[in-house]
Computed example of a mutant assay.
Amino acid sequence: MELPGNSYFSDNVADLSWTGYTVLAVIVGVFSILGIFLNILVIVVTVRHKQLRQPLSYTLVSLAVCDLGRAVFGGLPTTVTTAMGYFSLGRVGCILEGFAVAFLCGIASLCTIGVISVERYIVVCIPMGAAIFQTRHAITGVALSWLRSFVWNTPPLFGWGSYVLEGIKTSCAPNWSSRDIGNMSYMLIYFSLCFAVPFAVTMVSYLRLLWTLKVVSL
């Protein structure tokens, strides 16, 4: 079945039936609306109650902002394009959506989770007084997470790497599958620095935390 309208690729062919697109659009829409509501609730509650403004809260609010951005800039447009059955936002729209989702949801949230894991490790595993995770540490960690995400998601905007349609071709993401040397070099560095490093920090922190809790419980 050929897709209607001015889709991103003129030879785009439907991967689902219209029923499939409709059901998927409803699912994505429901989760997007829930994500917007719940993450706004987290942010508002934290801002309004001073007792919640602890170092950990700054990282949790940052994570909520990441998820909110993913719902607004990724979930809602994907709901619309999926309901239409094709990507209707054009090449520029694809690039902007891919950048926003990768920047807001991808690397920023992953790095923030790494900061949270380090905070938990310091609080639980290091004897009181030896090291204290303070507000300035949390703010610095959050700022560096966003800066890191911004730096490593901008190269495709200038020709190193690219953002393309993915899956059933109603949303966009970094070009993971291209064999072009430019895309491959970008994705290898992107994966190593923006996925592997934060993931390793998170795993090491929580494994050390679990080991400490096990030792204490003996």
Rank of each mutant, 00 (worst) to 15 (best):
74 G>S: 13
190 Y>A: 04
200 A>V: 15
193 L>S: 08
8 Y>H: 11
75 G>R: 03
145 S>V: 02
72 V>S: 07
213 L>K: 06
202 T>W: 02
59 T>P: 01
173 A>K: 05
187 M>K: 08
62 S>A: 14
143 A>W: 04
66 C>Y: 02
156 P>A: 11
188 L>K: 12
159 G>W: 09
152 W>Y: 14
182 G>S: 11
191 F>L: 14
4 P>S: 06
160 W>P: 13
131 A>W: 12
87 F>M: 12
197 V>W: 04
44 V>D: 10
214 K>Y: 15
56 L>Q: 02
160 W>E: 15
92 V>Q: 10
133 F>Q: 00
121 Y>A: 01
38 L>D: 09
124 V>R: 05
173 A>H: 10
26 V>P: 07
182 G>L: 06
200 A>C: 15
161 G>C: 09
85 G>I: 01
178 S>P: 03
186 Y>N: 05
69 G>F: 02
25 A>D: 03
148 R>V: 14
140 T>A: 15
2 E>M: 10
188 L>H: 11
59 T>Y: 00
102 A>F: 02
40 I>L: 13
128 M>A: 12
119 E>N: 13
205 S>P: 04
208 R>D: 10
140 T>V: 12
168 I>P: 01
19 T>C: 07
25 A>F: 01
5 G>T: 05
203 M>P: 04
107 I>H: 02
156 P>W: 01
52 L>M: 14
116 I>L: 11
1 M>W: 05
175 N>Y: 07
44 V>A: 07
92 V>K: 12
187 M>C: 12
197 V>R: 09
129 G>K: 03
157 L>T: 03
132 I>T: 15
109 S>Y: 04
133 F>P: 00
41 L>T: 08
63 L>T: 04
77 P>W: 06
181 I>N: 08
19 T>E: 15
151 V>N: 04
84 M>S: 14
218 L>G: 12
87 F>C: 06
28 V>S: 00
210 L>K: 08
201 V>K: 01
88 S>K: 11
57 S>C: 10
165 L>P: 03
51 Q>M: 09
196 A>G: 07
135 T>S: 13
212 T>V: 12
137 H>C: 06
10 S>A: 11
218 L>R: 15
85 G>E: 04
14 A>V: 07
35 G>S: 07
201 V>S: 06
53 R>S: 11
162 S>D: 14
34 L>N: 11
130 A>P: 02
74 G>Q: 08
154 T>Q: 13
44 V>T: 09
136 R>A: 10
36 I>M: 10
3 L>I: 13
57 S>P: 05
28 V>A: 02
29 G>P: 04
71 A>P: 01
164 V>K: 04
3 L>E: 09
171 S>E: 15
131 A>T: 15
178 S>M: 13
76 L>W: 06
176 W>P: 03
125 C>L: 03
199 F>M: 15
201 V>D: 05
204 V>R: 04
178 S>V: 08
117 S>M: 11
59 T>C: 10
215 V>S: 13
118 V>P: 01
204 V>I: 15
88 S>C: 07
217 S>Q: 12
36 I>K: 03
32 S>R: 03
112 T>H: 01
157 L>G: 04
144 L>G: 08
42 V>H: 07
22 T>W: 04
194 C>F: 03
66 C>E: 05
